[in-house]
């Protein structure tokens, strides 16, 4: 259980990164003219869609991970292949985590990568529609936009030993990103109705959100996220490298 708590915290830390890319979408989705409750519902549904995508990816890579190392249901704890998977996964996470600190930038895939160009202008259209289905669809599609944070946690999910645990891993991470994304969506500030023009990119911001977007905060936030990911990666690495009898507590 502590493992998932750790992942949740890592998600909270990492969400400072989310704010940069996905925060813009959440802002643009804005507030529902029908009031704060409708706005809340909108953003919850949006984030639900987003997290669902992550959970699906988690289950998928968890399953693939198990397939790679042996048939599910018959895994022997000391399986060499499982440990190898943990090692690879841990290394990948450390690599991605260090990218947040600015190392290895050359190898990072384009952050607003290939699919993003196609989807982003089309996604903006969804923002203007009302109803539940639109934010859900938007969240689902949003979840597929390339993001190194997601990749890092997906690597963790792959080594977690099954689709169920993969699902839960990504769910923990996704829930961790909820607070920051909801805040960007203006939930914490719904005492200022009519603040947003739907569809417009924020130019002048409420001080709290502005602070988050200001580079100082963001860089710090990125470092914290990177740190968490590196720590998680090292733990996963240890799980693979150390003999099974030396059971690392809590993992």
């Amino acid at each position: 259980m502590t493992q998932y708590l750790l992942l949740f915290l890592a998600g909270v830390a990492g969400s400072f990164h989310c704010v940069g890319m996905c925060g813009g979408f959440a802002c643009a989705m804005g507030s529902d003219p029908r009031g704060p409750v409708a706005t809340l519902r909108r953003h919850l549904v949006y984030n639900l869609g987003r997290v669902m995508t992550y959970c699906f990816l988690g289950a998928l890579v968890g399953y693939l991970g198990v397939l790679l190392v042996g048939h599910g249901g018959e895994s022997t704890p000391a399986s060499l292949a499982q440990r190898a998977l943990a090692v690879v996964s841990g290394l990948l996470m450390v690599f991605i985590g260090l990218q947040f600190f600015g190392f290895f930038r050359r190898f990072s895939p384009g952050l607003t990568g290939v699919g993003g160009e196609l989807l982003v202008p089309a996604l903006r259209e969804l923002l203007k529609t009302s109803g539940i289905a639109a934010p859900l669809a938007f969240g689902v599609l949003n979840g597929f936009l390339p993001c190194p944070l997601v990749y890092a946690f997906a690597a963790q999910a792959a080594a977690s030993g099954g689709p169920a645990s993969g699902f839960l891993t990504m769910a923990a991470f996704g829930l961790g990103t909820f607070p920051a994304m909801l805040m960007m969506g203006g939930i914490g500030i719904w005492w200022r109705p009519g603040f947003r023009q739907p569809g417009a990119v924020p130019v002048s911001l409420h001080p709290a959100r502005g602070a988050v977007l200001r580079s100082g905060w963001r860089v710090q936030g990125m470092r914290v996220a990177g740190g968490f990911i590196v720590v998680l990666g090292l733990i996963t690495l240890a799980r693979g490298v150390l003999p099974m009898t030396a059971h690392v507590h809590g993992i």
Partner: peptide, 17 residues
Amino acid sequence: AASLLIRLGVGGFLAMN
């Protein structure tokens, strides 16, 4: 366009589940 994307998105949601 919006309704089409909604179709894709909701369909994707169900499919993933």
